[in-house]
Structures are given as C-alpha cells and as structure tokens.
Design a protein around this nucleic acid. Structure first.
Lengths: 225, 225
DNA sequence: CGATAAATTGAGGCGCATCAAAGAACGTGG
DNA sequence: CCACGTTCTTTGATGCGCCTCAATTTATCG
C-alpha cells in the first residue's frame, strides 16, 4: 500500500473507540453499516452450535480489518468478540463505497485483505480436518508467530498471546484439557512454551515440522500493483 | 445482478473449454493470469498434508466462479480438481481488472461472491471442529441441497451428487468407512438416501435438525444494490 | 488477601480410525 | 453385449486418540 493510499484509508475512519475484554463487538445476523479496524488488542470471530459447542473461526491481531467483509455482505453470520481490551477504528460503509469507487487499486487491496482471511480459513479447515491434536495446536501457534512477526510483536522468539487454553481449544476444535496436554508435550519436547499469556518458541524448525507448517497461505511476498 | 451486468461479465470470457473428470485445473503455487468460471459439472478445491492426508476445502457447482480469488491473490495455495467432466469459461485477469474499474457495483458483486466462499469456509470450520460425524455428513448434504436448489438442480427432493464416499470423507474430515456408516444411519433413520450419484432427501426437517443446519451463511436473501 | 477463573493431572469411556475382506457398480475393450 | 479388471461400497473386528468427569494446584484480579 502506498503512503497516499494509507492516508486515504486513514481518512475513512469516523471514530476510534476502546472496548473492554470479553465484549461482543458484532453480533451475527444484525444489519451493519460500518466496519471495525483493530488498532490494538485481540479479537476473535466465532460461532456456536445449538448444543452450546463453540468454534472460533479466526483470531485477529492489531492491524486486521476484522469485519471488512461486512461491507459487501451487509450482515455477518458469526459473532465477533474481544479477547482483550481493544482499540477499534470505525469505518462507515458509505465511506468505503466512495473510496473503493475512486481508488480501484486500493479497492483490490481491501478485496485482497478479505481473501487473506479466506486463505486462513482454508488452512484451518485442513488443520481441524486432518492434523492431529498436537499438529493443530502447533500449527496455530506457528501461524500466530508469523502474523505477530509481521506486525513487529515478536522479540527473541517470543510473542504475547493473551488468551486462555479454552480459547485455543475452541480455535482448534479440541477440549481445553487436551490442549493442555498438547502444550505440555510441546514443552517437554522443547519446541515451545506457552505460559502467562506469552508464547516462547524454542525450536522453530522442530515446531514447523510437527505442525507441517508452510506460510505460503499467508501471502507474505511483495505483490505487483 | 442486472441483465446489463450479466452481459458485461459474459463479455469477459475469452474461451470455453471442456475437461475430463479427475483433472487438476489449477495447481497450488503457480502464478495465474486467468480465472475459471464453472459452466457445467463439479470441481473441488483441496489441500494435502505431507503425510498424504487430503482435505477438500469446498465443492463447486455449475455457476460458481471457482477461482475468482486468484485475481487479487495472483496464485492459489490449494489445488482445484474436476470431480466430473466439466465445462469451464476462462476469464483473463486483465479483463477483470478493466471491468471492475469501470463497473464498481459489479466489482462489489464479484467481491461478494468470494466472500460467500469464505462464509462457506467458516461453516465448514464449525462443522469439522464441533459437529459429530453424523452432523457433518448431514450438514454437507444440506448445504449442497440448498445450493443445488438455487441453480435449479433439485427435483422432487433429489439432486445429483456425482462424487464418491471418499470425496465426502475428504470434505468432512472423516474416513470413507465412517462416512459409509453415517450414510447408512441417515438412510435407516429415513432422512436421506445417497446412491448411484444421487441424493434423495426424505425428511428435510429431520435432516436439518441432525445437521443443526441454518442456511443464513449462504446469504440467499435479495440484497440492495 | 480472599474469591474466582485458569491450568494441570489422573482415570475411564466412547467415537472414529484402522485393518481386512466380500460384494456391487463401473468402465473398457473384445 | 458380455467378460473382466478396477474402483467403489459395505460390513465386521479391533484399537487408539481425544473426550468426559473430577479433583488439585496455580494464576488473576478486585
């Protein structure tokens, strides 16, 4: 994104607000007229079954345009909830409409951003469908390592992860008890430690191997305009 | 989509070709300069782990713009394979670029179409992560019923599904053996029959209940321009 | 510092996988 | 149109990975 485009996008922000941890930011089925750009903190998208089972669909970090897809979709079929205290920039749909019509390249970048979410969804389908419990946990923590690294949140192989093991369970399709056992195994195998809201990677190559991790799906390479 | 927009989009087609069953249409990682619009037949997107386990990510029916997301993404991180003999319309990226710049509303419709895929991905994450094996199979067959109905392929509660039980297994994160048992149970419970490449739904309400199916994620309602 | 939520560990059970083999459907060529 | 190989479906027997239930320890927060 060019500096000019960054400025154009920044100009669409109508308001910046703070929300506490554990708050529902967008509720499924509600008609929407604005999007939420996550400035600081962490949120998740999730869905529940009637039986009460919860599945987290994606984890979002600072910089993510959490519900940009509500612009074309008009409503969401899932909920969005803050995992920590968060700062959110509000972008009205009508401003997005104007900006995307006047700036085709920026429009494609925004489109790209929603497609990146879809690519992450697909990797999660693979993960939950075919990876072992250990592989699933390892893979998720690999993904977050790379995404945290992109936003400069990794230092000395460590990054903050202020969520519970139950959240990890809901993201991987496991139970909190089993996630705990898998984390113990990763720790015992000297691959990584997750403690006090921080992930510390000790052996990236070993971890990637267990996770069968390939960052290609995160589309990190520089792209032509 | 207006008649004029339909015509505009039709004008972007450079070529229509036929491909046999079981052919790879797009290979992961390859740089792309055109998209494939499925005119007839059925294709799937899938990914493999190094261990050889396969996961199908989405099933596509006639009318689906199978890899429209390659337009902004430039390459795909998964494969696309024909499940049956298919007819495909080829749309070059440069024509899409021109059309989307000149027709903002059509651009949003195309964006919407890729977001619908993402919504389907999310429902699959929920399905594979939290539904029972029976629920997963039932839910997938519910989804296909509704999508087949949209394209007018459902007659007397029946629709064609020319794929194998192994394909169903790869789509639901199960084994072919267990899918077979779940199909038997659905049959014994008089909910549906899947035989000779055709699904016959006997009890939609019962099936929906077992699947915990809610078609909201398919965004079927009419939307404002 | 007390209350509450989260992490940890153990014991036991179930759902789905794995392995195996027979039967049915399908495609292909004679 | 039938013979035949191949793929797909079906069913049974067995095992394991993850879930469930439960209790204790540790962290978090007002």
């Amino acid at each position: 994104m060019s500096d000019e485009e960054t400025e154009t996008l920044a100009g669409t922000v109508a308001e910046v607000k703070e929300v506490g941890a554990g708050q529902i930011i967008v509720r499924q089925g509600v008609s929407l007229s604005e999007c939420n750009l996550l400035v600081a903190g962490m949120v998740c998208r999730y869905k529940d079954l009637h039986g009460g089972q919860r599945q987290i669909l994606e984890l979002h970090l600072a910089g993510d345009f959490v519900d940009l897809h509500s612009f074309p979709l008009k409503r969401l079929e899932h909920n969005i909830r803050s995992l920590t205290r968060v700062r959110i920039a509000i972008v009205p749909h009508d401003r997005l409409k104007r900006v995307t019509e006047e700036h085709p390249h920026l429009a494609r970048l925004l489109w790209f951003s929603t497609l990146l979410d879809a690519a992450i969804h697909r990797e999660w389908i693979l993960s939950i469908g075919r990876r072992s419990a250990l592989g699933r946990v390892a893979h998720l923590l690999c993904e977050l390592f790379v995404r945290m690294d992109v936003i400069g949140a990794v230092h000395d192989g460590r990054y903050p992860l202020p969520i519970t093991q139950m959240d990890l369970a809901d993201a991987t399709g496991l139970t909190a008890v089993h996630v705990n056992r898998m984390l113990k195994k990763l720790r015992d195998d000297k691959l990584l430690t997750f403690r006090n809201g921080e992930v510390s990677v000790h052996d990236w190559d070993g971890l990637s191997r267990v996770a069968d991790f390939d960052p290609a799906y995160l589309y990190l390479e520089r792209r032509p305009r």
